[in-house]
Every structure is written in C-alpha cells, then in structure tokens.
Design a protein around this nucleic acid. Sequence first.
DNA 1: AATCTAAGCAACCGCAAGTTT
DNA 2: TAAACTTGCGGTTGCTTAGAT
Length: 302
Amino acid sequence: MGRSPCCEKEHTNKGAWTKEEDQRLMDYIRVHGEGCWRSLPKAAGLLRCGKSCRLRWINYLRPDLKRGNFTDEEDEIIIKLHSLLGNKWSLIAGRLPGRTDNEIKNYWNTHIKRKLISRGIDPHTHRPLNEKTTTATIKTTTSATTKATQLDFKNTPPQSLAEISLLKSQLDFKYNNNFHSSQYSIFNPKKTETPSFEENNCTSSSMTTDEQQQQQQQKRESHQDQDVNLDLTIGLALTQTSSANSAESRLRQPVSSCQLFGSVLTRPVCLCWQLDGERRELCRNCQNQNQSSKNNHSNNGL
DNA sequence: AATCTAAGCAACCGCAAGTTT
DNA sequence: TAAACTTGCGGTTGCTTAGAT
C-alpha cells in the first residue's frame, strides 16, 4: 500500500518552535479544538507538518501538563509500570496524569535506568543484574496480605494487546474467585494528585456511614502500601469515538481515582473486554451487577 | 577563557494500526 | 475488499546547556 508523505517537506519549518508558532498553535486549538492534525497547519497559518504540531501540542503546549521534576512516587510508579508493560510509554503516561509519553521515555532513559542499575537491577528485565534467568515474574500485593504471584508470561513484559489480554485473563483466573474485585487496582500510591475518591463523586450513594468509614480505613491502609497491584485493563470507560473505543486506546486513558483506588470501591470493577465497543461478553462483575440490578428492579416492583 | 564531554530534552522519522472512501 | 488516508507510538537524532578539564 502506498502512502503519501505527511507533508510537503520543502514548505515546512523544522527544528525548534518559536514563540509565535506556539502562540498560533495554541490560539488555533483554543478555538477549534484538537484533531485534524493534517489540515491544522494550513488552517492555523503554520509552516509545520501536522505531526509536528500534534507533537508540540501534546508534549509541550497542552495546558494540563504537569511541569517540574518527577517525584519519588512517580519514579516508583514508572518503574513498576515499566516492569509490567515494558516500553509502552503511552500506556505508562496514561497512568500518570500531566506527564507525556515522551517525557517519561526521556526520563526513563536519562534517570531511571541509572537509578535501577545503581540498585543492581537490570532496567530491561527488572531482575537483579547478576541473575541469568529470563523468566519474568510479577509480584502482586494486596493491602491486607502480601502475596507473591508468579505470572507466566516469559522473557518480556506483554508487548501486544493480545498479550495484555492474556495477562489479564490470567489475573482473572488467579484472583477472581479469591479476592474482592478491588484488588485489581493498579497501584496504591501513598499520595497522588489525582482527585480523591470522594472528590470524584465516586462514592456510592447507597453506602452507609459504617461502610464509608470502613472504606476510609481500607483506603488509609492501601495508601500505606505503595506496591503496585496489577490492573492492566480495569475500568475502561466507554467512549464515543470509534478510535477511542479500541481496547488499547481505552487503556491509554487516564484512570480516575475510582479505578486507581480500587480498595475503596464498593462497586465491582468492569472487566469486560470490549474490543469493538459492543458488550458482547460480560465479565463476572457485570453479570453480578446485572443480576443484582434485576433483583433490585423486581424488589422495587419495576 | 577556551575547549571538551556528557546529560537532558525537544523534535524528527519510520512504522503500524485504525479509519474512511 | 482494498486502497488511501490519518493518527499515534516508540526509537532515534541532534541541539542546548552545564560541568569538567
């Protein structure tokens, strides 16, 4: 299949962006929104290719970018997500609001690699440098108990959607009958800039005060444990656009605190694997949810 | 003060996946 | 159904700057 060049190279600027160009791009996006990158440069009066505009916006101009150094907590999150996902920078960035994939990638290459090496850890395998075995293992923990679980994907972290799916199904199998669904929460940072569970209006309206207190306690406990819990696909929000409906793009979306702090959830997390936006197969949680809502309806005489 | 070197980071490039025609 | 097109990702490059010599 042939492909046309993304832009006419002889008519485009390259290299560092000027303040004027930045301003033009920001002004244009402020008025028209993101998207249509190919036609944007012409419409905005920029002598840049669409790709370049997109990159500049995403990595530098976006208003929601978090500036400044990475915190130690962010470091640890990146390390743990990298151990799970490998060089899936966009997925990792999706879990760190305000950080871009490029920023994380650069930070990994310039800081974290060295940090891991200085700890005697191989940054590729996340195993001790002097260790020869290539089988990757993942340590998962819960707030109540610490369990080391050997997952059986080998050699490298999952590289494709299919592999992530496989890993998720392994998790399903290993945990679904043993733990509350909240254990799928991906990480329990000690603190986070993500809005709190309550701020995000995720509190179940049907929750009693006791239940809320219990959840608060669980939340406190979970914050004391900053180990990463495995949650590769949890809480995938249904989105409108077809492209956003792809499983991987949904993976990339920032997770809300509802998804992050699974331990404070009372509502089971949706684990459906909806590849085309249609709910073809319901996960256990959704089946239970449907069942209980049916029951509620019938109990309410509906 | 001049030069060299390494680190940090913005930006580019090629490719693949997804979408549209 | 296939070609054309768009978007986004990950690897890489190259410029800038700070520190060392």
